[in-house]
Design a protein around this nucleic acid. Structure first.
Lengths: 224, 224
DNA sequence: TATATAGCTTAGAGAATGCTTAAGAATGCT
DNA sequence: AGCATTCTTAAGCATTCTCTAAGCTATATA
């Protein structure tokens, strides 16, 4: 699967590139509109991720419009700064298939990418489980056995990330870069605090404990 | 595979060079930024290892940026002193593919190098075995037969090193230079102590003993 | 057998890492 | 605006890990 990123902020572009490569996509990056337009219209990609505001004659919207005019129907995920879109539909009218408001968490973007690329159903996974714990990514419901559990946004995002990497430990920096905004600068201690919150809600009241610490490395979730 | 190291500290540069050569990479070293920049942009390398803080007009970051501007996409592994990075992502903004915080253990660097060069999967070896002992480098799990074994960070690193050199004995100094930070100054006795720890956990409780001492030389692991 | 050398064992001091708590900021809701 | 919830930090505490030092044991050599 080949993905083209058109984004002038190097920081964001590189972060996206790395995350997507880790999911085994082949990723190209273009840092300005003219160059990006040329690539999008000449090379065959499976998905384009385009920033709305980019330098060059073409801005993000113009690229999408031009692509559609040339009957190139590659899915487009548009990135927009907060407040740029007056109403939700404007972004999609141009021909983009989805859009994401900056700043976003990497995992949020990966979820959209998975959806747009229509990965096989088994991979899509709307309900993640570990032992008697279930997390529904569509309804935002979390259960341990029969018991419904209320999580806050961050707690939910963290748990989802751990579940998607079940068995594999993640270190705190990796967790931060995936679960928090790409420009959030939170301390590793924040992750520790959230692990405490999660444990209080999904581990402590139950017999078996799913959340484990790998000292010196990080955390994982695993049903024994 | 050709690797370029740009690093002004001779001690580190030489240690890296030696370790990489032992893994059969062709290694060039440059001790300052200007020279390094020239080499990185004129010679074709498969990987660049660049120290952030180096003398010369170009520091490490500048070299990476300049390379990317000239559309040279050779993977870059950036070396940074602890605390140099304001926020974790800054290191990757420049276009570097990975970074490592000094001081690091040689084995850690070799692992990153292997990853960046995308060595064939069979070579990567995430699960190392010797007899009924298995060590999983991804999940950090160690088993002897069915029995899970808990190792500390150093114990794990030492066992991993011995397993990667299965059958071949390593002397204490070699072990120290690979498993400990390059500027750690530990006594050979420390290795002895850690061998004792490992034996208690993975040998003593079992029939066959995998860890062997070669008197006057060092240690090896081998399944008879 | 005596002696030297290498490796083994043990316990403890100090360092590193993670956990916990509480309080202040930020955000969202009424 | 005011209140409630959520997010993040900071500081102290607890635990675990690392490494050394000192004495001990095994092995090789004269």
């Amino acid at each position: 699967m080949r993905i083209l990123i058109i984004e002038d902020e190097h920081k964001i572009a590189q972060a996206l590139k790395k995350a997507l490569q880790q999911e085994n996509y082949a990723v190209d990056v273009s840092y300005d509109g003219d160059d990006g337009y040329a690539m999008a219209t000449t090379e065959p990609y499976d998905l384009n991720i385009i920033d709305w505001m980019i330098p060059g004659e073409y801005d993000g919207l113009a690229i999408v419009k031009a692509m559609r005019k040339e009957k190139i129907h590659t899915p487009v995920l548009l990135l927009t700064a907060k407040g740029t879109i007056a109403d939700r539909t404007t972004g999609l009218n141009s021909g983009a298939d989805d859009y994401l408001v900056k700043p976003f968490a990497l995992e949020e973007l990966l979820a959209r990418v998975r959806a747009l690329l229509r990965r096989p159903v088994e991979v899509q996974q709307t309900v993640l489980t570990a032992g008697d714990l279930t997390l529904n990514t569509v309804t935002f419901e979390v259960k341990r056995g029969d018991k419904m559990i209320n999580l806050t946004g961050k707690e939910f995002a963290l748990l989802e990330f751990l579940l998607r990497n079940q068995g594999r430990p993640s270190n705190k920096d990796t967790i931060i870069s995936h679960v928090w905004d790409y420009n959030a600068d939170v301390l590793p201690n924040t992750v520790e605090v959230y692990m405490k919150y999660l444990r209080q809600k999904i581990d402590d009241p139950f017999k078996t404990h799913l959340l484990q610490t790998i000292r010196g490395f990080g955390y994982k979730i695993e049903a024994k």
